[in-house]
Design a protein around this nucleic acid. Structure first.
Lengths: 153, 153
DNA sequence: TTGATATCATTTGCATACGAATGAATTTCC
DNA sequence: GGAAATTCATTCGTATGCAAATGATATCAA
């Protein structure tokens, strides 16, 4: 009897295993939602270009002609992803491709005149997108958040 | 003359238009990278389930049986996306579907015994994933970051 | 009660995102 | 110099993610 009681007690004591794991409090989950919100704000301001496409154009504006692979590194996209993005930008006449004369493996990417116009025109909208994404935070909070976010990325 | 001078002056003053827009400093871009890093950490710990799939299981564990749509709301997925996620979980026997007896539009989703085992087994790994994702920050920084990130999401 | 609205689920189409495999070209190193 | 390793690009397969259209069912309101 006391044996059974102890066994029962043991089970009961170890039972409260329901240690709360709250999905909605996990970084990954909130990070995903914050990213979703940003993409939504982006789409509301720039409807005919996606964030990755914009990133490619903005980076090409910074660095000028580069290889597809190098561009991918600069905007944090793997080779397969960057290819799709560049293909679509090329189909719209915003970038042009050429072969590297020396290293025949490389595919050079550059802005067309139209692509340069487009990115210059879009940058003010992008500033507004950044502003709106950060709108829930005060200036001081923004500084803190960006510093910490950068550490995580 | 002074009119022309003023005009010229005005143009010159406003000319430094090359106001730097640095992609790598924009929230959206860093948010995307931070999310990528998290997904990578997730995959390193839980190889056979994606973050959205895990989220579905974890939420079903919390709330029990719900409609597919309602589940989507709880884990921030639209109807089309949640359908795909649930389909794959069902194909693996981790969730089961049934029709709502009263409201015939609704498709009820619930964990199977196997699904419940899986999520219980995975939660410790998920804790570790959260820990590792936040590892670049101190305890105090984590508290600050989570508070601000939640405001943005 | 019925006609207008709203909700739930599905499907289609498009765009990331990434692992893995492949082929071509280059670099390394013995 | 030449084999091995590396790099660049492409392709395939799978999985989100979302807009828009559609069909079935429920709810609301006149």
């Amino acid at each position: 009897m006391s044996g059974e009681d102890n066994l029962l007690k043991l089970v009961e004591v170890e039972e409260p295993e329901e240690q709360d794991y709250l999905l909605q409090e996990q970084v990954g989950f909130i990070l995903r939602k914050a990213h979703q919100r940003h993409v939504s704000i982006f789409a509301a301001h720039i409807g005919d270009l996606t964030p990755p496409q914009f990133a490619a154009l903005a980076k090409l504006r910074d660095v000028g002609e580069t290889s597809q692979n190098q561009l991918g590194t600069l905007i944090a996209m793997d080779a397969a992803t960057v290819k799709g993005v560049i293909d679509r930008l090329k189909a719209r006449g915003l970038v042009e491709l050429s072969k590297h004369e020396v290293d025949k493996r490389r595919l050079l990417v550059n802005l067309t005149a139209e692509g340069r116009d487009a990115i210059e025109r879009l940058i003010p909208l992008a500033r507004e997108i950044t502003r709106e994404t950060l709108a829930p935070l005060s200036a001081k909070e923004i500084a803190t958040f960006m510093k910490l976010l950068a550490k995580l990325a």
